[in-house]
Design a protein around this nucleic acid. Structure first.
Lengths: 226, 226
DNA sequence: CGACCATTTGATATGGATCAAGCGATGTGG
DNA sequence: CCACATCGCTTGATCCATATCAAATGGTCG
C-alpha cells in the first residue's frame, strides 16, 4: 500500500504563453470562448477543492485527474486525450486534481461564460449535459473494471486506449507511466508489468518499447475483458 | 467468482395500480408529470439496453441498479432511496438494469416530456444537469471505495448509508441483503459478514438484527474509511 | 561515462475468495 | 400447532491472486 502513489513533484504551474482565442475548431461555441495554455509534464492544472472556475479541453498531450487518499494512495479518475473535456463538475469545487501527463496544450474556458450561454441557448445546455453524461458513463465503466481480475483490468485498459487512440490504430502510444496505469486500475506497477509481459508471451500484444503497445490479437484481449 | 450474483428470480413486473399524478411534492415541475407505480421485491423496473424512455424517482422502498457480466458476476451500480432519481442516462438506452430491492413506490416520468420542458426552461435543464452531476459524483466515490481494503469498503458503505438514512439516525435499516452489499462493494457475502462481526466485536457497531445496524462509534468507522 | 529513473523480474507474504458446514428466522403443509 | 424445508446469514478451514519486498536491467540526459 505504500509503494504506490508518491505524488509526483510539481513543475512550474504552466510553462508558456496564453494565446488569445485560437480558432482551430469552431464546431462548438465553446471553442470561441477559451484561451489556450501550455502545461509541462506533471504540471498541476488545478487542485481538488479549488473553486471550479474554468472548464478545460485537451488540445494536445494528455491529462490525468486524480485524488490522493489520506494514507498516500493515489487513485486516477481518468485520462483525457486530445478532444476530451475535463473539469466539468456539477459542484462549485473540483472533486479531483488534474495534471498534465505529458507536455500538453489545453483550452481553458471560463465556466461562468458557458453557464450564461447555456441559460440562453438550450442547445449549449444540452451539450453540457451530454458531456457530463459521458463522464458518468466512463466512471461507471471504471467501476466495472475495478471489480475484475488483474488480467481483465489490464486488457480492458488496453482496449479502451486502443479505441481512443487516433485513428484507432493497432499500435498504442502510451502517454502515461506504469504507475499511472496502476493507480488507474487499482493495481501495482509490478502487476501491470507482469501482466503485460504475460500478454506478450501469449502473443496478444507486442511491446516494441515500454510505452508502445501493439495489439496483435484483439479478440484474445476482448475475451479476457470478460 | 461463481458464488456471487445468481440473478434473483423476477416476480411480477409491477404489482399494483398506476395512480394518475400524485401531487405529494411540488417542489419541482417533474413531480407533476409522472405517475406512481408499485414494484414488488426483486421486480424489474427496467433492463439494461432497453430504450431509456422514462426517468424515475423513488417515493418509498429502495431500488438497485446493476449489470451482470458475461460470467455471471453482478455489479451493483448504486442504491436509490426515497427522494432519489434514477434512470437518467445521457444515452438513448439504459446502461444498467434496475430492480426494486424491497416493495417500492416509484414515480415514473416520461423522458420526452422532461426534455421538451428543459428545451424551453433553462432552470429545468440545469436541474437535469445537476442530477446527472450528482450521479457522476456518486460513481466517482464508488470508484474510490473499490480500491480500498474490505474493512474500508464496508465502513464506507455504512457511513454512506447512515448519511442517507432518514434523519441521519444512528440506527440504519438496511433494505438490501448481504449479497447486494457484496455486489456493490466488489466483495463476497462471507467477507461482508466477517467484517461486520469484526466491527461489532470492536464495538464500532451493534447488530440487533442482521438488517439493523447501529453505529456506536462513527469516528472509528470514519478512521477506517481511510 | 555515470547517475537517475522507469521498468522488469524474482521470492515471499497475505487479504480476501472459495469451499464447506452450521445456525436462526420465516413460512408452509400436515 | 408443530415438523420440516427454505433462505439468509454466520463461522471455520484452506487456497490463491495480487501485494510486498528486493534486486537486476535498460533507457535517457547531463
Amino acid at each position: 500500500m505504500l509503494h504506490q502513489a508518491q505524488i509526483p513533484a510539481r513543475k512550474s504551474a504552466f510553462a508558456l504563453s496564453i494565446n488569445p482565442t485560437p480558432k482551430q475548431n469552431l464546431d462548438s461555441p465553446l471553442e470561441m470562448m477559451g484561451s489556450q495554455m501550455r502545461f509541462g509534464r506533471n504540471a498541476e492544472i488545478y487542485g481538488e477543492a479549488e473553486p471550479a472556475e474554468y472548464l478545460y479541453k485537451v488540445i494536445s498531450g494528455a491529462v490525468r485527474t486524480y485524488k490522493v487518499l489520506a494514507d498516500g494512495r493515489r487513485q486516477i479518475g481518468g485520462f483525457y486525450l486530445p478532444g476530451d473535456i475535463f473539469g466539468l463538475e456539477a459542484g462549485a469545487e473540483h472533486a479531483f486534481s488534474a495534471e498534465a501527463v505529458s507536455d500538453s496544450n489545453v483550452l481553458v474556458i471560463k465556466r461562468s461564460a458557458v453557464m450564461d450561454l447555456a441559460a440562453r441557448d438550450s442547445g449549449v445546455a444540452q451539450q453540457l449535459w451530454t458531456v457530463t453524461g459521458h463522464e458518468l458513463q466512463r466512471a461507471q465503466e471504471h467501476v466495472l473494471l475495478l471489480i475484475k481480475s488483474a488480467q481483465e483490468r489490464v486488457a480492458g485498459f488496453l482496449v479502451e486506449m486502443a479505441k481512443r487512440a487516433p485513428g484507432a490504430a493497432s499500435t498504442i502510444q502510451l502517454a502515461m507511466s506504469r504507475q499511472d496505469i496502476a493507480d488507474y486500475l487499482g493495481l501495482t506497477i509490478e502487476t501491470i508489468s507482469r501482466t503485460l509481459t504475460q500478454f506478450e508471451k501469449s502473443a496478444a500484444i507486442a511491446l516494441p518499447t515500454s510505452r508502445q503497445i501493439e495489439i496483435r490479437n484483439r479478440a484474445a484481449l476482448a475475451r479476457l475483458n470478460s
